[in-house]
Amino acid sequence: MTGRVSLACLALALAIASPVAAQSVTQVTLLPATYYIGDAVEARVTVRGVALDDVVVPETLPDLEWVTMEEIVALSRPDGVEIRILFRPYFPGTRTLPPVDLGSFELSGLSVFVSSVLEEEARDLEPMRDQLLLPGTRLIVTILAAILVLLPVTIATTGGFARSLVERIRRGYRERMPFRRMSRQLKQLDARVHELDGRTYYIELLSLVRLYLQQRLGISILSSTTAELPRFLSAAGVPSEVRERIVEVFQFGDLVKFASRHAGIETRKAHLTEIRNAAVRIQKEPSIGVGPR
């Protein structure tokens, strides 16, 4: 920065030293002292030996590639006039303002030093750049693009796991559904044990069990006879003690249904409990079952 100030002083000295005929420039002040490309700068030049009436401000101001003169104003001072030139430089480095014809004299040789925020000097003008983006725009666009790219990849890599998870949940629900339904219906049947005769009771009880076993084990129990039951249950992986309990209830039920065997309330309740316990045992063993669920 010190170097630039020195350069500015040097320019000022040169300007002072330049001849202006009978008039003489006594002082040149640039406001601001340090300015950059594009800044509006006011040069105040005090000229001694000239009356204000002698000064004619030109209608058309010089307009060069590197500088635009925007306004020239002449003010009266006790020892002469003060010429205020408002200009806007567009090129860095030391330049001489174009001569200005002020009627009785010409103001010329006024050098100025234009600073630049760039270190390099004498650079060419940059081409026009694109529109500026709002802060964060690039970040948002990047995130969106990443999502678009990564989403299919994420779905492809984790889709299998998600599907199996959903399938596990669905299967668990479906496995438990027949049990829940049967439990509910067994409770209702238990509540009606005194109202129903033995035959009707066992018809309902065994129908519930058949439906449960068919849905839970995926085997066609509905069309199986009591004699076929052990084979199907065994194939489905039902433990032998559970199997025997179920078959016993079915055998007794057949006697009640088809041979008019008497079934007391206690027996019915005991068989209902047997069935409930067997179902609980089957539910606890996820490996039991052979067919589609």
Partner: peptide, 11 residues
């Protein structure tokens, strides 16, 4: 030796 029919007999 049964005096009643069960589904097994029919099958």
């Amino acid at each position: 030796g049964r005096g009643y029919v069960i589904p097994e007999d029919v099958k």
